[in-house]
Design a protein around this nucleic acid. Structure first.
Lengths: 221, 221
DNA sequence: CTCAACCCTCGACCAGCGGTTGAGGTCCGT
DNA sequence: ACGGACCTCAACCGCTGGTCGAGGGTTGAG
């Protein structure tokens, strides 16, 4: 109930972030990125929320190379109820609503305003040729609902383009679609077909599982 | 069509990037981010493509806080055939940066010293009961090589424990194992069975694809 | 030919970021 | 009352991303 000591926190985080240390956690507090409670005698006590904050910081650092100064601003924005408004890649004059700067890789929370892109906007935002989009659609990797696409389609298209450079074309990626469908199906089995509080949490967990599994099966150096 | 001298380049870029200097441009060359041609007497001559490259670098630095090392990798990726806008007509200076996609979300680089845990260490680190570990092993989600486990097993076990709280038990998770295996199989088809430079890059991409696909298929709020 | 403006290299130096280390001391469970 | 976990504070450190200056060629206008 009372929160965790710094040693325990270290254990928890080290599974996910190899280079975290006690001194780093203390440093992050000194920089104002977390503010754990203290016991009467001065020991830090980390709540679950503090842990989430730490995970946020470590993830942003590792995956987005953001400087602490910027991460701190994002956290501040979150605290104030805003969304981080990550300055994504500069958008061309054909300005769209906003490219989703992916605040946090594993944030599956409901985004208040879901992006709705026309096909042209999607193409421009992802910077991919129209044919690639066609192929992706024909294999069910990108789907339009009505005549617009969600923000995830940008990421999908961009990644597909990068994979194409390795010789992996959309048709090779069908299995990913299947796997994702099954995964979502499993989640819906638990939470029901409507989006609930749990949906995002579960998705974050299963994606984390997936990532760890892939990593664990990769050939070792 | 001789290209521009460094002073001229400076003028052009300073309109857009306040803090660019001659020495910075030279520094970027020294770091291998641009490779301008040289005149017989050694003067640098920047082509339009070199200018685009510089703009790309400066934009990525300013707007996405990317370290030069990462920017260099992105440029390398573009050079290796991914050039939706890179080789196209240099439109607006800011149109370039959107192509390479977001930074790699997960680090799949080879870790110098791979963790080797005994079963007890794993259990302790993940904080899960032994039975869960048994089940995970029997379904192939966690595998020992020899008599030790890798660091990813910690994450796998922890996530499995959290999922169990939602009623998802190891046997429900077999599909994840299969999906991960297939994913790694695909990667190895490209890179061969040994770990190479590309292995990690590719894994990061496929995991990113997977994540985006799941997200895109989750029920909307 | 000469002069100013421009450009070159190379090595030394530097500031800030993101921590690490260690000394010296307190707190807590057994 | 002991060992291990925790505390603070100041000094130190390695890396990144440059800057600066000395010493010296190149170019082009006059």
């Amino acid at each position: 109930m009372g929160g965790r000591g710094i040693g325990e926190v270290l254990q928890l985080l080290q599974a996910e972030f190899a280079d975290v240390t006690i001194s780093k956690i203390r440093f992050l507090e000194a920089e104002g990125l977390v503010t754990p409670a203290r016991t009467a005698s001065g020991y830090r006590k980390f709540s679950a929320a503090d842990l989430d904050r730490l995970r946020y910081v470590l993830t942003a650092q590792r995956d987005q190379y953001l400087p602490l100064k910027v991460i701190k601003e994002h956290l501040g924005a979150i605290d104030r109820g805003l969304q981080p408004a990550a300055a994504g890649p500069p958008v061309a004059p054909s300005s769209l609503p906003q490219t989703p700067g992916q605040p946090v890789p594993e944030d599956f929370g409901a985004t208040g305003t879901e992006l709705r892109l026309t096909r042209d906007e999607l193409r421009a935002a992802a910077g991919v040729p129209s044919e690639l989009l066609d192929e992706l659609e024909s294999h069910g990797l990108v789907v339009a609902s009505g005549n617009h696409y969600g923000g995830d389609a940008i990421v999908i298209a961009q990644v597909a383009a990068e994979l194409a450079a390795y010789g992996l074309e959309p048709r090779h990626l069908r299995a990913f679609r299947t796997a994702a469908d099954r995964e979502v199906g499993l989640i819906e089995q638990v939470t029901g077909p409507r989006r609930t509080e749990q949906t995002g949490e579960l998705a974050a967990l299963t994606v984390r599982l997936h990532t760890a599994l892939v990593r664990s099966r990769l050939p070792r150096s």
